[in-house]
Amino acid sequence: MVDQQLLIDEVKKVVSRDDVKYVIGYKKGTTGFTISPAFAYSTEYADKFIFNPLCKKNLAAYPLLEDKLPLKREEKEDKRKIGIVAKGCDTRALVQIIQEKGLNREDLVIIGIPCSGVIDYKKITAMFPNETAYSTIEEEQGFYKITINGKVHEIAKEELLADHCTSCIAPNPVIYDVLIGEEVEPWDLEEHKNLDVLEEKDVGERWEYWKEHFDRCIRCYACREACPLCYCKECMADLLNPQWIRRSVNLSENTAWNIMRAYHLAGRCVGCGECESVCPVNIPLMELNKEIEKDVKNIFEYSAGMDSEEKPLFGTFRPDDPEEFIM
């Protein structure tokens, strides 16, 4: 459990530094179990900051999303650092972006948070469909204690835990400047839900499975926008010349999009689950990502976002990379 006061104090310390522009963190949302990203420019605002198991959103996307207006005459670019509250997977995303030179480590102040898994928003809202507010939510020995209207609900952790957390390899921040509280014990890794079932099916059955999901895709590209690693200035899906993927929404184009989204994250996906949790039509995108993650680990012994000095997976090779499939 993260000590809220410790977090607030630390955020205050960081935000009051002269070389820090603002700190990104979490605050309580407006309704139900929502959590809102928060931007603290002042120490007063930092009082709103929280961290609880509902804080699933990966904030690593924000430093790259910053709106940059054209500078006025004689105005200088604000080059101060950005503070960011980051869980294990968030820091992995940051490491990966730093590795790809999307961000500089010096431009960030990372307030690391040891995380013992987060709650899947879709699961908790399904459990309490009409709750408009909660007062506290705490994790205690395999249970979540959720207080709503003075009533405490005890719910087994695995019922609410986000699926991708069971195979998380970095519960503790990979990089940080300050760590809030004690590091947590890593847990026994489980394979991502459903992967073994899918792997045992034959090719045709798997296509039937994915066909149904891809057919439903409305191509809103929310998966792309939510992903901290999808930060290309121009996405290949938006290109018109050549137009890799047509705009019409049908099975063929939807499949092409989903293959390419997953593929472009090969060796880059840090497994934070943002894509799947924002998908409005519940496509199990993490199954694709986790499968690739598993292949990358098995074939190339590589895990994304663990070491910023490492070379990107597809930017390098080893002479002895497996090639049994080559004729």
Binding site: P37, A61, L65, C220, Y221, A222, A226, R247, P280
Partner: peptide, 23 residues
């Protein structure tokens, strides 16, 4: 807007949003 990630879910799922593109 600072926290908006520009995902477009609000417009795609909105029953009244009606903007379109032609190609």
């Amino acid at each position: 807007a600072q926290k908006c990630i520009g995902c477009g879910i609000c417009t795609y799922l909105c029953p009244t949003c009606h903007c379109f593109d032609m190609q």
